[in-house]
Amino acid sequence: MKFISIVVPIYNEAENVLHFAAAVKEVMENSHYKWELLFIDDGSRDNSVQIIRDLQRWEPQVKLIMLARNYGHQIALTCGLDSAQGDAVITMDGDMQHPPALIPVLLEKWEEGCKVVQTIRKDTEGVSWLKKETSRLYYRFINAMSTVEVYSGGSDFRLLDREAVEALRQYREHDRFLRGMVSSLGFKRAEVPFVAPPRFAGKSKYNLGKMLKLATDGVVGFSVIPLRWAFYMGLVFALLSFLLLCHALWEYAQHQVVPGWTTIMVAMSMFGGIQLVIMGIIGEYVGRIFTEVKNRPLYFVKHNMDCDNDEETHTKCG
């Protein structure tokens, strides 16, 4: 009998855990698979962990790994993928916006021979027009610059065959964009469209800062085109500055020099701003090189509730 791992990162999801676990259990008990529900606690500050521990008393399929601190959604997913033992691994969020009812569809595609089954979010109930439009533009932007196609509407709700999981485990960069990393694997894939319902309870933990960081990770992690843009911008503005110099010399030769405080300030501001932008782009890449060469572990596990003992264990993963 094939074994399915369902990996769910959580951060302050006490209001959602029981409802989500019940929905998954209902789906999986009607299937012919053995299964585990692996929660990865990403440093929750509410009572999410206690609820899961109580749940484990009567649900042996439920397992819990507690990270030592809040590492972020992508690292928590990575920890789950590192720990899952299933023949296929399904990653999803625990707020019910990734409907457990779709799990049989993912498994069906997997049984047909697809190594990666990616859900595509066609719409999200209750989300503003502005957020939808910025998301659409972002995916167009990243695909215009990257050699790896990242599907618009792609989410972290997907199924990975064991072979794909083992391949993905070899990616150990710290600033992770799993949607791009999965797309870069190249395995046979299928897509499952869905409409994301509203959260069952609580508020999204993905604030604007986290969304911008994820977007930056996607662009910088899969493209060097911003560096080329910086070079091209430098060439363009070098040409403009040369033309401005020629204009100044011509005016001087014609004895029509007028005190040009405004022109000087505009030119200085423009070129200074461009230089700062270029330095910022270069700095972003240099900073990531600095992070990677230190080769620190991606995360530390504080406690693994799959262990036979109930003592806290600290494990690192590089």
Score class of each variant (00 low, 15 high):
residue 296 R to E: 15
residue 33 Y to W: 09
residue 234 G to A: 11
residue 5 S to H: 05
residue 56 Q to S: 09
residue 126 G to S: 03
residue 76 A to M: 03
residue 88 A to H: 04
residue 62 V to Q: 00
residue 187 F to N: 01
residue 98 H to D: 13
residue 166 E to T: 06
residue 174 H to P: 02
residue 23 A to E: 10
residue 53 R to G: 02
residue 218 G to C: 05
residue 40 I to M: 01
residue 223 S to L: 11
residue 176 R to I: 07
residue 187 F to L: 04
residue 293 V to N: 04
residue 69 R to E: 09
residue 228 R to N: 11
residue 206 Y to F: 15
residue 311 E to W: 13
residue 39 F to K: 00
residue 33 Y to D: 09
residue 279 M to E: 12
residue 87 D to Y: 03
residue 257 V to A: 13
residue 213 K to L: 14
residue 164 A to D: 10
residue 248 A to D: 12
residue 71 Y to W: 06
residue 176 R to V: 07
residue 223 S to C: 10
residue 65 I to E: 01
residue 116 V to P: 09
residue 166 E to S: 08
residue 314 H to T: 15
residue 139 Y to A: 03
residue 34 K to P: 05
residue 175 D to S: 09
residue 21 A to N: 04
residue 281 I to T: 11
residue 159 L to K: 05
residue 302 K to H: 14
residue 92 M to T: 00
residue 183 S to M: 06
residue 268 M to T: 12
residue 284 E to Q: 15
residue 16 N to P: 02
residue 134 T to W: 14
residue 182 V to N: 01
residue 149 E to Q: 12
residue 248 A to N: 02
residue 251 E to G: 10
residue 34 K to C: 09
residue 180 G to W: 02
residue 109 K to Y: 14
residue 196 A to V: 03
residue 309 N to G: 06
residue 152 S to P: 08
residue 207 N to R: 05
residue 247 H to S: 11
residue 301 V to D: 03
residue 27 V to P: 00
residue 244 L to C: 07
residue 68 A to V: 04
residue 100 P to A: 07
residue 300 F to G: 02
residue 258 V to R: 10
residue 274 I to M: 08
residue 247 H to G: 10
residue 41 D to V: 00
residue 156 D to K: 01
residue 238 A to K: 06
residue 65 I to V: 12
residue 161 D to W: 11
residue 295 N to E: 14
residue 40 I to E: 00
residue 258 V to Q: 08
residue 258 V to F: 04
residue 213 K to F: 12
residue 307 C to N: 13
residue 311 E to Q: 14
residue 126 G to Y: 07
residue 246 C to Q: 14
residue 184 S to A: 13
residue 289 I to T: 06
residue 177 F to T: 01
residue 18 L to E: 13
residue 156 D to S: 13
residue 306 D to G: 15
residue 238 A to H: 07
residue 1 M to T: 11
residue 54 D to L: 05
residue 120 I to L: 08
residue 267 A to C: 05
residue 178 L to A: 00
residue 260 G to A: 13
residue 107 L to K: 03
residue 315 T to W: 11
residue 94 G to P: 05
residue 101 A to V: 11
residue 119 T to S: 07
residue 124 T to A: 15
